[in-house]
Structures are given as structure tokens and as C-alpha cells.
């Protein structure tokens, strides 16, 4: 006798994602982060009133993956761009998605001031310790001793300074509401990152505060590592310099 079986889907593509082929390198975690963002947008039910602001960097083509309106800012200027948009449309959900060259180097002024004004949008900051798109040059986040194409003998902190910890830096400001650093190189970290990103979007939907989620991300191509080695290096080296933790949550602390 045949058994009838009903299948329930327990995992599917979020509505806020498009079905397409990835252009990211094998082992790159940009894609994982995209998915977490799309899930968060779905969960707050805001796909049709969300705009994403793409950076200049490997994720400049983010609009190929998201199923919501998407705007492409100039290099580093996404926070200013998002400020202009959100001020005129406070009813919409706005997020910037930025790399570390984009956010912590050329766009340092824009991110600090947008955060300090407490603009009510969300920043997803993807820290992979290099300039990915342009071929792996030194970034402000490159670790001491880390070899890149423009510091071929390793970053010399005596000459170019130590890497900038953006989450720590922004959490010294009074205004920004929620700042957390997460990672996506293991399932456990992905689950935590998912919660943090979801929380940031939730706070925006409730019109509470500016949020920045820094995500430690891999760039096997420009680190000169296999995807597996990249995960290990992130876990050992990057996470040691960039502590994975929540720096500030004014909502939970009862201040927003």
C-alpha cells in the first residue's frame, strides 16, 4: 500500500532575494551576508518599501541579488546617499552595504557623521581586511604583518598605523543606537549574525536608531588562501584583532 507523504519546505530562497548565479568567488562570504540581509527584510515584511544602497567594491552589483529597489552610491558615500534618501522618505527602510575600503577609508567622514547624526538607516559593514574589487590592496583594516599587493612584505604598523576597528570607533559616539560585530565563517556565527542583522532592521522599522553591523568576511582570492584556509585564518587572526561582540545596544539598555 502506498503511503501518502506531504512535503513541507523548511528552507527556501527569501522573497527579498533574486534567483541568479553568483559572481562572487568560491569561498567568499559576501553571498551569505546578502542572504541574511534578505531574510531580515522578509521578516520585518518590508521588501516592497526597502531600498538598498550599494557601495563601490565587490558588492557594487548587489542589485543583481536583491529583490527590492537598489541604488548605487559613489565610493564611500553610501552613508551620505542614504541620509539624503531616508530624510526625504522616513517611511521607507534604507540600508547601506559597504566594504572596508569603502567605509573605513574613502568614506570615513560620511560614516562617522551619518552615525553621529543618528540617521535612521542600517549599515551592513563587510570587513574582509583588503580591497577586494581592485585586486587585494592594503585596506585600513588589513592586519599588522598581513601581506597584500601594496604591502608586499606585510603591513608595517609603524609606517601606516594599526588597522581601524570601526565598531569600537563608532561606539564611542553618543548617538548611534546599535553596534555589533559578527562573523559568518561557521554555522554558529551565522546564527548570531542573523539575529544581529534582524535586530538592526527591526530597530529601523520601529524608527529607533542608527545601527551598524560589522561582519567579518572572507576574501580567499586576495588572501591567497583556499576557502578552508580562509575560514581558519579569519577565526584565528581576524577574530583575535576584531573581537566578535555587541558594543552598544541602546534599545536593550533602555536608552532609545
Amino acid at each position: 500500500m502506498a503511503m501518502t507523504q506531504s512535503n513541507t519546505a523548511i528552507f527556501s530562497r527569501p522573497e527579498s532575494m533574486q534567483s541568479t548565479v553568483t559572481h562572487y568567488c568560491p569561498g567568499c562570504t559576501h553571498g551569505v551576508i546578502h542572504r541574511l540581509v534578505a531574510e531580515a527584510i522578509d521578516e520585518i515584511g518590508a521588501r516592497d518599501r526597502t531600498v538598498g544602497v550599494a557601495p563601490v567594491g565587490c558588492s557594487v552589483l548587489a542589485y543583481n541579488y536583491f529583490n527590492c529597489d537598489f541604488l548605487e552610491a559613489a565610493h564611500g558615500r553610501a552613508p551620505a546617499f542614504a541620509t539624503g534618501f531616508k530624510r526625504l522618505r522616513p517611511d521607507m527602510i534604507v540600508f547601506t552595504y559597504q566594504g572596508d575600503g569603502d567605509l573605513a577609508s574613502i568614506g570615513m567622514g560620511e560614516i562617522v557623521h551619518a552615525a553621529n547624526r543618528g540617521e535612521k538607516f542600517t549599515t551592513i559593514f563587510v570587513n574582509n581586511a583588503v580591497y577586494g574589487m581592485t585586486g587585494g590592496q592594503m585596506a585600513p583594516t588589513t592586519l599588522p604583518g598581513q601581506v597584500t599587493s601594496t604591502c608586499p612584505v606585510g603591513r608595517n604598523a609603524n609606517e601606516v598605523g594599526y588597522p581601524i576597528r570601526m565598531a569600537e570607533l563608532l561606539s564611542t559616539l553618543v548617538t548611534p543606537g546599535y553596534i555589533e560585530r559578527v562573523a559568518v565563517h561557521t554555522p554558529k556565527h551565522i546564527i548570531n549574525a542573523r539575529k544581529a542583522i534582524r535586530r538592526a532592521f527591526q530597530y529601523q522599522a520601529e524608527n529607533r536608531c542608527y545601527s551598524m553591523i560589522e561582519v567579518l568576511s572572507t576574501c580567499p582570492t586576495n588572501w591567497g588562501k583556499t576557502p578552508e584556509e580562509a575560514v581558519k585564518w579569519l577565526d584565528k587572526e581576524m577574530a583575535a584583532y576584531y573581537p566578535i561582540k555587541c558594543f552598544k545596544d541602546s534599545v536593550r539598555e533602555g536608552n532609545k
Binding site: 552610491a73 551620505a80 541620509t83 567622514g109 560620511e110
Partner: peptide, 26 residues
């Protein structure tokens, strides 16, 4: 309407870029 003093003209130009994307006159 919206009035905002930005941190630099670089930022202001890019705020306008974002603001114009809403479709409103800026």
C-alpha cells in the same frame, strides 16, 4: 520640507544624489 547641514560639500552632493532618487525636488 527637509533642511540638513551636512559635514562637507562632498557629503552634501551625495546626499542630494540619494535624495533625488526618491523622486522629490531637491
Amino acid at each position: 520640507g527637509v533642511f540638513l547641514q551636512g559635514e562637507s560639500e562632498v557629503a552634501v552632493g551625495n546626499m542630494l544624489f540619494g535624495a533625488a532618487s526618491t523622486g522629490k525636488r531637491v
